[in-house]
Each structure stands twice: as C-alpha cells, then as structure tokens.
Amino acid sequence: MIPILIGITIISFAVIHLAPGKPTDLMVQLKPNVDLEAREKLNQIYGLDKPIYVQYFNWIKKLARLDFGRSFIDNRPVMEKISERLPVTILINVLAMAIIFLFSIPIGVKSAVRRGSVFDKTTTIFVFMGFAAPSFWIGLLLMSFFGVRLGILPVSGIASLDFENFTLIHKVLDVMRHLVLPVSVISIGGLAGISRYMRQSMLGVISQDYVRTARAKGLPEKTVIYKHALGNALLPIITILGLSVPSLISGSVIIETIFSIPGMGRLMFESVFTRDYNVIMAGLVVSAFLTLFGNLIADIAYAYADPRIRYGK
C-alpha cells in the first residue's frame, strides 16, 4: 500500500516536471508581457530554482499536511478549491451508480436466464449502442432535446440563479432537476456495461455443477436462480464497483464540462487550459487516492461476501 501511495505522488509530480522548461515558462507564455525579472521572482516563489528532487521533497512534505500549495491563477489554496468541488462530483456519481446497479442487475439476470429471447436481444442491442455512443454526444443530444427543444430541463449548472431564496425542499428539488441530464448521461453508459457484465457472469454461473445440484434436489426454479446462481454471480460485480471509480472520475471531466457543473472534473479541465500545475498535480493525487480507496472497499466487501476468501484454508 505505502509503495503505491509513494508511486502515485512520484508519477503525479513527474508528469508535470519531466517536460523541458519550467512550469512557469508556460505560465508566462500566456502573459507575454511578464518580464524576465518577474519570472525569476515567480520561480523563487514556487521554489522552481531548486533541483528537481528537492522540489519533490518540498512538495511531498507539504502534501503530508494536505497542503497542495496555491493555485497559480487566483492564489487560493488548492485544497480549498478541491474540497469545494469534490462533493458535487461524488454526489453525481453516487446517484448514477445507484441507478446503474438498480437497473443493470435485474436486466443482466433476466437476459442470462432467457438467453436468446426477444428481451435478451433487445437489451443486447441497447448495450452495444450505449457502449459505443460517446457520452458527450449523448449529452449534447439530451441537452438539445430536453433543454433547447422542449425547454423542460436546465442544461447547465447545479442550481438556479435565485437558489439562495428557496426553501429547503425547493432547494433539493432544484438541484435534482439540474442533475437529471448529467446523471442520465453517466447512467446510460454505465448501465450498458454493467448489465452486460452481469449477464456474462450469470451465464457462467448457470452452467455450473452446483446449479445442476440445486435443481437435482428439487428446489423451485426461483430458488435455483435467485439463491444459488445470483449469489455467486454477484461476486465479480463487487470488484467492478471498485474498478469503476477511475472511469467515473474520467467521465466527470466531460460531463461537468458540457453541463457547466462546478465539480472536480471541470476544475481539472480548467486547470489544464490555464496550466495551473499545483491544481493538476493535486487533482492527480486526489483522484488516484480515491481510486485506491474504492478498490480497498471493494476488496473488503468481496472478502466479506466470498467465504472462500473469508475462511481461507
């Protein structure tokens, strides 16, 4: 675990510093009127005149205190900016995950049990489409239909302008209304992937000997499927839950940019454009830690669910 944490910080740091030139060079390019002297001063402020490994150790020392430095753009602490943005991203993705699992498990089970049926074929087509369609395109389509054409759903931000004056219930409803489109876009892609995975997993389990045993002892078909087969087929899904953290974070860049949502993804995107390196490095570290955390939770859940691991021989 510790080597991975260290590795994450090294890569996050190296990505930014391996390129020739100093980060401030690029920053200065954006404002060509900054003279040489001011540039030197900038380098000093950010410690960029020191050898690279010293810079790394200084950075990591501060990082241990959760201090990611200050943004080049508005000079606010990076940590503050991130902790403002992260909850929004987490809210959207948790909502999407809940929807994805709520629907994809029954869909996957049903298409596996009735393999080759009309239902199975229809969902398969849907799955392939959902898999192949770029999320930003689906976002654009939904936006232009529900937002522009019908005008029934907001297409940007997470709250209305006069949000502050709303009652609590009104506030919640307002946020929900704003989240319908972005959450739908994430769900469409995820639904396709997870229901397909569930189907495969279920198909693999259905042909196992112990399912035949369950039938041979005269259990009703429902018990055979939902107790014996599903109990085993859900195990790999737990792992998938952990593994989907990084792709959800990746996806948030696109979703949040399209729908102008002030989340982590959009922060990352803005920082890339403004070359706000402290924010970029922090974004990398925080997102990688989140992934690691997700995997850890999934491992623990898996070990709890699978007696072969819980009671290793």
Partner: peptide
C-alpha cells in the same frame, strides 16, 4: 506494481495532465 500505480489514475485525468505539459 508500476502497472498498479498507473491504473490508480483516472486515465482521462492523466492524459489531460500530460497534454497540459506537452
């Protein structure tokens, strides 16, 4: 271990970060 570390990063974040530099 190196692969594990690389896999911890959301790929799109990593790509964005490199593009910001190069």
């Amino acid at each position: 271990r190196f692969a594990d570390i690389m896999l911890c990063f959301p790929r799109f974040f990593l790509i964005l970060a490199v593009i910001a530099v190069v």
